[in-house]
């Protein structure tokens, strides 16, 4: 098994006394070293839960996971807490959406970088400090020494997210998980962070799984795109294929609904209705109730992803003719 990430039939359920939420319902994918996969989806699609499952970061007491989930050869589902703790932050690291709340407000940036290095590499405080300086340089934070002594609220949004990335990279992870890392940022800062992540990914040869709701962001950074709906990948393929020749009606709808240049004056295509309740999923294709080309057959069974791994494939029995994106 040479893949960096190997996922088969992954399900994640959140169980509480009064209900069970089926957040992820059978996800399969592989990720190679140095590859960038974007998981594209709207709120409640299960994209963030999938990402967190890769580090077992979902709330431990309520989460039930099944399937196969291997990261760097380590079985994540059956690993002991101790094993998971030594993977987190070392071989797999994560960048979050909102750097203001994702950083501890009463610890300096320097302390928050150093503690990760010390935790995993057992180096001295002085060496950890040296590494922290290098890391700020790597993520292009100027006047590093001063910024290490700063608290999160003393930095601008862009610098905070760079510091968050520095923390994630502090032990040179093989896999970087990014949960909408540019969504909370201003436009001119968003593109800086996006380009920074792309450069770092190439220089360090990391595998990256990048969760976003923004097709444009995915287009800038992804090698492959997986479109997620109601806890399943409904379409997966190379970035060009998915953006230009979308197969699944949901992806086509999403492309039509995303406002971009040259749409002025035209009516936007919309997807009618709203996503299904994850506590009570319909049988068959979860998108069928909102799908313009759905029929009785769609409700009989969950359609499989057609085609081989790595190919451009979609979870739809009708595969309507290509729509122009």
């Amino acid at each position: 098994m040479s893949n960096l990430v190997h996922v088969r039939d992954l399900t994640v359920k959140f169980v509480s006394r009064d209900r069970t939420v089926h957040a992820v319902n059978g996800v399969d994918f592989d990720l190679d070293q140095g590859e960038v996969l974007c998981i594209l989806g709207e709120s409640g699609s299960g994209k963030s839960v999938t990402l967190r499952a890769l580090m077992r970061l979902n709330p431990p007491t309520r989460t039930v996971m099944t399937g196969t989930l291997n990261v760097g050869g380590q079985d994540i589902i059956t690993a002991s807490d101790r094993e998971i703790e030594s993977i987190r932050g070392r071989s797999v690291a994560m960048v979050f959406q909102e750097p203001m709340t994702a950083l501890d407000p009463v610890f300096t940036i320097g302390q928050q970088i150093r503690e990760t290095v010390i935790r995993h590499e057992g180096v001295s405080k002085a060496d950890a400090h040296k590494r922290a300086l290098e890391l700020l340089d790597l993520v292009q934070i100027p006047s590093a020494e001063r910024r290490l002594a700063a608290y999160p609220h003393e930095l601008s949004g862009g610098l905070r997210q760079r510091a968050m990335i520095a923390i994630a990279l502090s032990c040179r992870p093989k896999l970087l998980l990014a949960d909408e890392p540019t969504t909370a940022l201003d436009a001119t800062v968003q593109i800086q962070i996006l380009l920074l992540l792309r450069r770092l990914q190439r220089e360090l040869g990391m595998g990256v799984i990048f969760v976003t709701h923004d097709l444009g962001v995915a287009g800038e950074i992804a090698d492959r795109i997986a479109v997620m709906y109601a806890g399943r990948f409904v379409e997966e393929g190379a970035v060009r294929e998915v953006m230009r020749h979308a197969k699944h009606p949901y992806t086509q709808g999403l492309l039509g609904a995303t406002v971009h240049e040259g749409m002025r004056g035209k009516r936007l295509t919309t997807i009618i209705g709203s996503p299904p309740n994850l506590a009570n999923l319909p049988t068959g294709c979860a998108f069928a109730p909102r799908c313009p080309s759905a029929d009785a057959a769609c409700l009989e069974a969950v359609p499989g992803l057609d085609g081989a791994f790595g190919a451009h494939r979609a979870r739809c029995i009708h595969q309507p003719a290509e729509a122009m994106a």
């Binding site: 987190r88 979050f96 950083l103 501890d104 009463v106 503690e115 990760t116 935790r119 923390i167």
Partner: peptide, 25 residues
């Protein structure tokens, strides 16, 4: 319940490390 606790868990901190953060906060 704060987000940064997830970050800290994501960095691989063990219980002792987490407690230090909770105490200072």
């Amino acid at each position: 319940n704060q987000d940064f606790i997830t970050t800290l868990r994501g960095k691989g901190l063990r219980r002792g490390g987490l407690i230090a953060h909770v105490v200072k906060n």
